[in-house]
Design a protein around this nucleic acid. Structure first.
Lengths: 122, 122
DNA sequence: TAAAAATGATCCTCATATAGGTCATTAAAG
DNA sequence: CTTTAATGACCTATATGAGGATCATTTTTA
């Protein structure tokens, strides 16, 4: 990369990322789920946003399925409105995990078992 | 960092976001799943990163469950290595959707339909 | 109905996540 | 073993996501 002085310094590259259909559908689906759950519980966008520690604008984007949101924010919101991706009692994704876990036997320790070590921060 | 020049006007606020245990576990779990799937398919980190159009560094963070990654990147990677969150044939999350959908009747059109729900308990 | 609240959309600024590089360490070939 | 590839960890510059206005609609409720 060259950076001449004078002469147009930085032509913005504008990295336009592309997403697969699958990702777009998944995100759109999740957003819809969240929105539906929020409505069901009669929570205003502002309320949820506050509780999640995010702005109302971001919540809007999340509910719209915008793929450019940090996953942490999405997970937080999902949790707050009650949309569970993983669940203690074998819901949704957890099933997938069991399968893969048994098959490969390598999962991040942070979610491995529970056994000793209370480790209940938070 | 010092910020001289008259009382420094813009002391960076450094918004440190906090995440619930649930979100952290979910993310860590998903990351582990992705990593396991990648290994299983014998794909190098660089390969997957290239295919997803992201950097190797970002892939590392994703596999580590870093909550500050855009959800689009995570979904792309998940798709590439074969970890399906939602699936055409009623897997995982889709079940949740059916339930909520029937109950509320408001879902994004892009994912609506698919004929009658099979709902065959995975 | 009128008033108040919630929402959707847009703009601007700042904080920061990402790309891309380096380097040390580990694993895989040869 | 030696060589090569893959990984993990770190750093910096910059492209961009997020916060925080504002305003027009739409929805609620009084």
């Amino acid at each position: 990369m060259v950076y001449i002085r004078n002469e147009c310094k930085v032509m913005p590259k504008s990295i336009t990322r592309t997403y697969s259909r699958y990702s777009r559908d998944a995100s759109s689906l999740l957003g819809g789920l969240i929105r539906a759950a929020r409505k069901e519980r009669k929570l205003t966008a502002q309320e949820v946003a506050d509780r999640a520690g995010i702005s109302r604008g971001l919540l809007q984007r999340i509910e719209k399925g915008d793929l450019k949101c940090e996953i942490g924010a999405v997970f937080e919101v999902a949790t707050i409105v009650g949309v569970k991706l993983f669940d203690a009692d074998e819901t949704t994704l957890t099933r997938h995990i069991r399968q893969t876990e048994d098959k490969l036997g390598l999962l991040p320790k942070s979610v491995r078992k529970k056994s000793k070590a209370v480790r209940d921060e938070f």
